[in-house]
């Protein structure tokens, strides 16, 4: 239990429909555990319940049945509310709608200020958070003049400045261009490697998911797959059946394998596939 940061226990949640209409559950009977220090990717097509998981993870919404625990604290317990939100920070898809202040560094300071932290300590945290995400030199800029990727990194810094142990990102790269996506992924990895923060992120990009230690796939409000990228992408047909893509590298390896060509490994990344292809070409 001690190394579990986030625990979902038979969680079911549904949104309120208009005029008392009862909607199908967004998340149904979901159980999972996230360990400290993990780098986890959530996959699933739109409407599969992934975003709801993000909101459930720090008590923005609470389960209809079942429980969510953050370091053993139940998110239904309002007394622990601040502590829970300080432990698990959530970053959303649209960076524009998360930035509160008119100057970058003041926005990053917003969280710590709300927590009533000493000004000198806030200053230290803000500077550090901005450095981790590579936005320090933009600290005096106006957020609306930054690019999407830069804004998203400011939003991440705003959460980091509260010194959370876990950060959950709901499609942080969906609205960004390739360069913005690369920068945000880089920042997320640094948080995980250098600061030891648990990172859980939702994405539609398989190349991004491949960089995680663990992939959880949701479909139709349920958890359907949970494993390392190697395990998850080994079942190419299953992934496609769930309306998701497989990384091109895995797809090619699979095609070759189906054709009876003896290719080693699952060829998750570019370099891995280059090596295995080189090997079979040498053999051939």
């Amino acid at each position: 239990m001690s190394d579990t940061i986030l625990k979902f226990q038979n969680v079911t949640f549904r949104y309120d429909g208009d005029e008392g209409k009862i909607l199908p559950p967004a998340v149904e009977d979901l159980s999972l555990e996230i360990k400290k220090g993990e780098f986890v990717a959530f996959l699933g097509h739109n409407g599969s319940g992934k975003s709801t998981v993000a909101k459930l993870s720090n008590g923005l919404v609470v389960p209809e049945s079942g429980d969510v625990y953050v370091l053993g604290m139940n998110t239904k317990n309002e007394d622990d509310d601040i502590k829970i939100k300080q432990t698990v920070g959530v970053v959303f898809q649209n960076p524009d709608n998360q930035i509160v202040a008119t100057i970058v560094e003041e926005d990053v300071a917003f969280g710590p200020e709300n927590l009533g932290i000493e000004p000198s300590e806030i200053r230290r945290r803000v500077d550090e958070a901005l450095k981790v995400v590579g936005m320090y030199k933009y600290r005096m800029h106006e957020p609306h003049k930054l690019s999407g990727g830069q804004k998203q990194r400011v939003a991440i810094a705003g959460i980091i400045a509260m010194e959370p142990q876990c950060i959950v990102l709901d499609e942080p790269t969906a609205m960004l261009d390739p360069e913005g996506r690369r920068d945000v992924m880089k920042a997320m990895k640094r948080l995980n490697c250098e600061l030891g923060i648990t990172v859980v992120f939702i994405t539609h990009y398989m190349e991004e998911a491949c960089q995680a230690d663990r992939i959880i796939v949701m479909d139709d409000s349920h958890l359907v797959l949970d494993g390392t990228p190697r395990e998850v992408f080994s079942d190419v047909d299953r992934i496609r059946g769930l309306g998701l893509d497989v990384p091109q590298t895995c797809a090619l390896a699979k095609m070759l394998k189906d054709d009876g060509i003896d290719i080693h490994g699952d060829s998750l990344g570019v370099d891995e596939l280059v090596n295995s292809l080189a090997e079979i070409l040498n053999r051939g």
Partner: peptide, 22 residues
């Protein structure tokens, strides 16, 4: 210039650079 090519293109460009006749 801040763009990316498909993963598979990267693979073949690398293989080509390694001297394979792809």
């Amino acid at each position: 210039i801040g763009l990316s090519v498909p993963q598979i293109t990267e693979v073949f460009v690398k293989l080509h650079a390694m001297g394979y006749p792809v």
